[in-house]
Design a protein around this nucleic acid. Structure first.
Length: 280
DNA sequence: ATTAATGTTCAGAA
DNA sequence: TTTCTGAACATTAA
């Protein structure tokens, strides 16, 4: 389930293969699955990008953005099971799209693979999409979320902080897995109303967000039990070995070594936390 | 053999 | 206005 660190890993994995090259052809892969959600429809998308130069490959929140010199950008939402690959898909059955690039070398193509097919690929104005999102959880420079930004955002809602962290209009890039991890490092209860957080808590939330996401990027994301998430070379991530609470119900909390991690459900999603280290 | 759970986003309802 | 629910899917565990 690609969240910010997994998408950042995808972007780094395909950047060298795409930037500075031209798109020779966009192809739909001959899989028997239901077609991906594309906007505009495939024929127009293929026609509009053919021959165009790729000038940047970057990440906005949980989306892969491929900027073309023409002003168009591919905006790819991997959702649950989408992957950007250079080689060796987990299976050929669920390959969905291929960008054939100019230039030689064995990796002159980039693929989008998606087992469940919930992914969405658009060719559009990327900035328009970015405007609909909150600040990037790990943005740089102008996109940086400062501690003051976090305070302002936290005033906007009374929902539990765990639920608010998943709202991409407040802060963009955090998903279900990293929300639990960040709150544990922050020593904040997932049940805490967001607008009741104290300034010291918000300061911890701010720094834990950066720390957890940067560490996860360093290990190229989390590959869970089902093994779906892979980097661009079809290799597993490594951050699952550093998880403190996610998917660790009944195991001892790594901080206090006394209390067991519990699982609760908030907004129909699993939340994992330690009652002792994250008091209400 | 059904059923539930998994995770992200959005439309539409409360 | 804000918050909640269900649907889009495929696969696996119960």
């Amino acid at each position: 389930m690609p969240e910010l660190p997994e998408v950042e890993t995808m972007v780094r994995g395909i950047r060298e293969t795409m930037v500075g090259r031209h798109i020779r052809e966009l192809r739909q892969c001959p899989c028997s699955c239901r077609p991906l959600t594309l906007s505009p429809a495939f024929d127009e998308m293929a026609q509009r990008c053919r021959g165009r130069e790729v000038i940047a490959v970057r990440r906005i929140a949980k989306r892969v953005v491929i900027d073309l010199k023409s002003g168009d950008s591919f905006v790819i939402e991997p959702r649950m099971t989408g992957l950007m690959l250079l080689t060796d898909p987990p299976d050929r059955e669920h390959l969905r799209l291929e960008w054939r690039m100019t230039g030689g070398g064995p990796s002159a193509s980039v693929w989008f693979w998606d087992r469940r097919g919930l992914g969405v690929v658009r060719l559009c104005d990327a900035e328009e999409l970015a405007r609909r999102l909150g600040g990037d959880a790990l943005g740089k420079d102008a996109l940086l979320m400062t501690e003051l930004d976090w305070r302002e955002v936290c005033q906007r809602t009374a929902r539990p902080i765990k639920v608010a962290l998943l709202d991409q209009k407040l802060v963009a890039g955090i998903g279900n897995l990293y929300a639990s991890e960040i709150l544990h490092e922050s020593r904040i209860s997932p049940l805490r109303p967001t607008n009741k957080l104290t300034n010291p808590q918000i300061a911890r939330l701010h720094s834990a967000t950066q720390h957890v996401l940067n560490e996860a990027i360093k290990y190229e994301g989390s590959t869970l039990g089902d093994g779906t998430y892979r980097n661009a070379l079809n290799e597993s991530g490594g951050y699952q070995n550093s998880h403190r609470v996610y998917d660790r119900e009944e195991l001892l909390c790594p901080t206090c070594q006394q209390s067991k991690i519990i699982r609760i459900v908030q907004a129909q999603r699993s939340t994992f936390y330690c009652r002792k280290c994250q008091p209400k």
